[in-house]
Amino acid sequence: MIKLLKIEFRKILTYKVFWILIGLYFIFLSAGILMAEFMINNMVDNMNRHLPIPLPHVTIYFFPWVWQNLAFFATIRYILIFPAIIIIILITNEFTFKTIRQNVINGMSKSEFLISKLLLILLISLIMSVLLAIGTFIIGLSHTQVTGWGMVFERIPFILGFFISIFSFQVFAFFFGFMLRNTGLAIALFSLYTFIVEPVVYYFLKSPLVFKNGISPYLPVNSVLRVTEYPAIPVLKTLMGLNLQDSVSLWISCIPLLYCSVMIGMVFLIMNKRDL
């Protein structure tokens, strides 16, 4: 395991494309998180122009809600696409450079090769979760008058939700990468599916005419986004009695992980059958 990770590290350590994309990811992620409050309040201002009683401005960076809010904004599809594209590039590169053949010739089994990529995904997800937790903690501290640690950490399970989302989304990318083997094609189809195909199918299936109980939330990308489906805005709760999401649901978190196991299983099956 450690050996496989070490090999993966050697592949990315001096790979410029990887670090540029990681850098862009951090920029977009931070910008998304730090501008979220401003954007929401912008929306509130717009709405207030048509409302007789103006809504108050919201704040989203205080404990314990900050965990849920930052997990929510860190897992919108426009930001989640970055680590997914990185994974697609790292996987399809191995086919473009034919280095997957070389790895196998030199004594790696195909399964070990797949495991090494999954370990990398797991590690990236873990590192990102830890970084998000640290960032959230700092942002929360600077926006909250802490009265008790229990209150501070109340909604920390949303970090686990973030981990499940970022991990699953990268596993979807892993699936696209190994199935399509071509960098451009895999990125194009993955983005097309995430941004166009699934949203269209989602609204189509959502129509009560098609399915009474709605299976649209169970679509792959949607199941990932639904782990942290809503931000927590206490004002809405007190004002309108809206209670959108209090916690990470075990069942809802299982859906993307279920997709992951099916996709990983398919990749193992097909890769072990296919010639390199």
Binding site: K6, R10, K11, Y15, V17, K98, T99, R101, N103, I105
Partner: peptide, 27 residues
Amino acid sequence: GSVIETPNFYPYLSPVRNLEIVADVKD
């Protein structure tokens, strides 16, 4: 040790780094 058809290496890595990967795979 095998030399099969075209040489397959990571283009963005130096020979030393490429061979480090080979050495790691081969223990």
